[in-house]
Simulated assay, not measured.
Amino acid sequence: LDGFGALGTPPASATAVPADYADRASAEHPPGFYGPADGGTAVNALRPDDRLKALDLAALSGARTGTLAGAETLDLRPSLFTLALLLLVLDTLAGLWLGGFLNRGSGSLVGRLRGRPAMLAMAGLLLLGAFGGPPARAEEPPANRPNGIESALVTRLAYVVTGDAAIDEASRAGLTGLTQMLAARTALEPGEPAGLDPAKDELAFYPLIYWPIAPGRPQPSEATIRRVDAFMRNGGTVLFDTRDALTARAGGPPTPEAAYLRKMLATLEIPELEPVPSDHVLTKAFYLVDTFPGRYATGQTWVEALPPAAEGTER
C-alpha cells in the first residue's frame, strides 16, 4: 500500500514475512498483503496496541517564523548620478576659483552676476532640479500579465486566473516548471506563463491553457464559454483540472469540482471522451510511456475518443 492506501507493486527492498508476523510495518516489510491472494497476511502500519499522540510543539514556542524571500535589489543609479553631478559642479567651481573668476573684482564672474538676482534664482532652481529625486515611473505590469504584441511574438503557456490566491500561485508555479522543462528538453524557448481572464483576454495566442476548477468561484458567463468553444474549435487545447484525485471515489457521487465542470461545459459540443488507450499517439509522441502521472499517480487522463483502428494499423 502506498501513502494513499492504494495497492501497488512492492519496492525492491521489500522482503517476505513469516506466516505469524504480527509486528508493525517497516522499511523491509512495507504495509500491504503478503502471501497468496486467498490466504495472505496483512501487515499494517500500526499494531493494535499503538496509540497516536498529538505532536508536542512546546519546544518551538520561541522559534521565529518567516517566509522565504529573495534578496531585494537596491537601485543606486539616481544617487550615483547625483553624486557625479555634484562632483562636476565642485570641479567647475574649483577651476573658476583657480582662474581668478570668483574674485570680487568688477571683471570677475561674481562681479558680473552682482545685481542680477533673476539669473541667480534661475541657477538655483536648475541646481535644485538636478539634485531632486528620480523621476516618477509608471507602474510596470506584472511579468505574467498577458500582452497582445508580446504574446503574439513569444510562445508561452497560459492558465486561467480563478481569483483564489493559492490556486493561482500553484498554477503559475506548475506552468513555470513545465516551461523550464520544455526549454531544457526541446528546441522551444517559451516565455513566462501568462495568467488569463478568459472573458477579456485573447486566447488565440496560447497553444495550451490550463484551467484549474475552483468550485467556490462563480460560473463563467455564456459569452465566455462561447469564446472557449471557438478557441478549441480552432485547434486550441484547454486542460481542465478538477484537482479531486484525493476526494473522488470510483462509483461514488461527483465531487464539487466535477459537478462544477459538468455544469460549466453543459452547453459545449464536446466529443466523446475515453481514457488514453495504450496505442494512442500520446504514448509515443515524445517518450514511450504507458501511464500519465501528474500531481497524483492515481489520476486518469481522458482524450477524445477515436474510431477503432483497422486491423494491422495504428491510430
Rank of each mutant, 00 (worst) to 15 (best):
Asp164Ala: 01
Phe286Leu: 13
Gly66Phe: 10
Phe205Gly: 07
Leu60Glu: 09
Leu87Asp: 09
Gly252His: 01
Pro271Asn: 11
Asp38Val: 11
Ile149Gln: 08
Leu98Trp: 12
Val17Tyr: 03
Tyr260Val: 02
Tyr287Trp: 12
Val160Arg: 00
Asp91His: 09
Glu272Phe: 13
Ala259Glu: 06
Ala27Ser: 13
Ala158Asp: 02
Arg172Trp: 07
Asp244Asn: 04
Glu150Lys: 12
Pro141Met: 06
Val161Trp: 03
Leu273Gly: 04
Leu208Tyr: 02
Gly32Ser: 05
Tyr34Glu: 10
Tyr34Phe: 11
Ala54Phe: 12
Asp38Ala: 12
Pro212Asn: 04
Glu192Ala: 13
Gly195Ile: 01
Ala37Cys: 09
Ser171Gln: 01
Ala245Pro: 02
Arg51Gly: 09
Pro31Ser: 06
Ala305Leu: 09
Ala223Gln: 09
Gly163Cys: 01
Gly174Gln: 03
Ala258Leu: 09
Ile209Ala: 03
Gly174Ala: 05
Gly312Thr: 03
Gly191Trp: 01
Pro190Thr: 07
Pro277Gly: 06
Glu222Arg: 15
Arg112Gln: 15
Leu128Glu: 09
Pro134Tyr: 10
Thr298Ala: 14
Ala6Leu: 06
Gly40Leu: 05
Gly39Thr: 09
Ile270Phe: 08
Arg249Ser: 03
Gly191Ile: 03
Ala166Gly: 03
Thr162Glu: 08
Gly111Cys: 05
Leu60Ile: 07
Ala309Thr: 01
Arg104Tyr: 14
Phe292Lys: 00
Pro308Ala: 09
Leu127Pro: 10
Arg112Pro: 07
Leu268Phe: 07
Ala266Val: 14
Leu127Met: 14
Asn144Ala: 02
Gly252Leu: 04
Pro193Gln: 01
Ala54Thr: 15
Pro215Leu: 01
Ala63Leu: 10
Gly105Ser: 15
Met122His: 15
Arg243His: 07
Asp197Arg: 09
Val154His: 04
Ala121Asp: 13
Ala16Ile: 05
Arg233Ile: 09
Ala297Phe: 03
Phe33Ser: 11
Asp164Cys: 01
Thr67Met: 11
Leu175Glu: 00
Ala22Gly: 11
Leu96Tyr: 02
Glu202Leu: 06
Ala84Thr: 11
Leu60Phe: 07
Lys200Tyr: 06
Asp56Ser: 13
Leu182Pro: 05
Thr224Leu: 02
Leu273Met: 12
Arg145Ala: 11
Leu157Phe: 01
Gly132Phe: 07
Gly35Thr: 03
Pro10Lys: 02
Val289Thr: 10
Thr82His: 08
Arg145Lys: 08
Gln219Phe: 06
Pro10Asn: 08
Ser278Gln: 08
Ala22Tyr: 03
Thr179Tyr: 03
Ser79Glu: 14
Pro218Leu: 01
Ala6Asn: 13
Gly294Asn: 07
Ser79Gly: 14
Leu46Phe: 12
Thr162Ile: 00
Gly3Leu: 04
Leu109Lys: 13
Ala121Ile: 14
Leu127Arg: 15
Gly124Gln: 14
Asp279Phe: 04
Ala230Pro: 05
Leu74His: 13
Ala187Ser: 15
Leu76Cys: 08
Ala130Ile: 14
Met122Arg: 15
Trp302Ser: 08
Pro18Glu: 04
Asp164His: 02
Thr162Ala: 02
Ile149Glu: 06
Ala123Val: 15
Tyr34Gln: 10
Ala165Phe: 05
Thr224Ser: 03
Leu196Phe: 00
Ala123Lys: 15
Ala42Glu: 14
Ile167Ala: 02
Thr298His: 14
Pro293Ala: 07
